[in-house]
Amino acid sequence: MATLFIADLHLCPEEPAITAGFLHFLAGPAREADALYILGDLFEAWIGDDEPVPLHRDIAQAIRAVVDHGVPCYFIHGNRDFLLGKRFARESGMQLLPESQVLNLYGRRVLIMHGDTLCTDDAGYQAFRAKVHQPWLQRLFLALPLWVRKRIATRMRAGSKAANSTKTQAIMDVNQPAVEAAMTQHGVQWLIHGHTHRPAVHELVVNGDAARRVVLGAWHHEGSMVKVSPDGVELIHFPF
Rank of each mutant, 00 (worst) to 15 (best):
A2S: 15
T3R: 05
L4T: 11
D8I: 10
L9Q: 13
C12I: 07
P13K: 12
E14I: 03
E14V: 04
E14G: 06
E15G: 04
P16D: 10
A17E: 11
I18M: 00
I18T: 02
I18L: 04
T19M: 02
G21R: 09
G21D: 07
L23M: 15
F25W: 11
F25N: 14
L26W: 13
A27N: 12
G28P: 00
P29N: 13
P29C: 01
A30Y: 07
E32P: 06
E32W: 08
A35C: 12
L36E: 01
G40N: 00
G40H: 07
F43R: 04
W46I: 03
I47T: 00
I47Q: 00
D50L: 11
P54Q: 15
P54R: 12
D58R: 15
I59S: 00
A62F: 13
A62E: 06
V66Y: 09
V67M: 04
H69L: 04
V71H: 05
P72R: 00
P72L: 04
C73K: 06
F75E: 03
H77R: 15
R80W: 06
L84H: 01
F88D: 05
R90F: 03
R90A: 05
E91H: 13
S92R: 11
S92W: 03
S92I: 00
L97T: 07
S100P: 00
V102L: 09
V102P: 08
N104L: 13
L111N: 02
L111K: 04
H114F: 05
G115S: 05
D116Y: 03
T117P: 07
L118Q: 08
L118R: 01
A123S: 13
G124Y: 02
Q126A: 11
A127W: 09
R129W: 09
A130N: 12
Q134I: 12
L137T: 05
R139F: 14
L140S: 14
F141K: 01
F141G: 09
V148N: 01
K150Q: 10
K150D: 00
I152C: 03
R157M: 09
A158Q: 12
A158L: 14
S160K: 12
A163G: 04
N164L: 05
T166N: 06
Q169C: 10
M172W: 09
M172N: 08
D173Y: 02
Q176L: 15
P177D: 07
P177Y: 10
A178P: 10
A181Q: 04
A182V: 02
Q185Y: 02
V188P: 02
L191S: 08
H193G: 14
G194Q: 07
R198T: 04
P199E: 07
A200S: 07
H202C: 08
E203T: 13
L204Q: 12
V205D: 11
V206H: 02
G208K: 05
G208C: 10
G208L: 11
A210Y: 10
R212N: 10
R213G: 10
R213S: 14
V214F: 00
V215G: 05
A218M: 01
A218V: 04
H221T: 14
H221M: 05
E222L: 13
E222G: 03
V226E: 09
K227A: 08
K227W: 03
S229V: 13
D231Y: 15
D231Q: 15
D231K: 15
G232Y: 14
V233W: 01
E234P: 05
I236L: 13
I236W: 09
H237F: 12
F238H: 12
F238W: 13
P239V: 12
P239T: 07
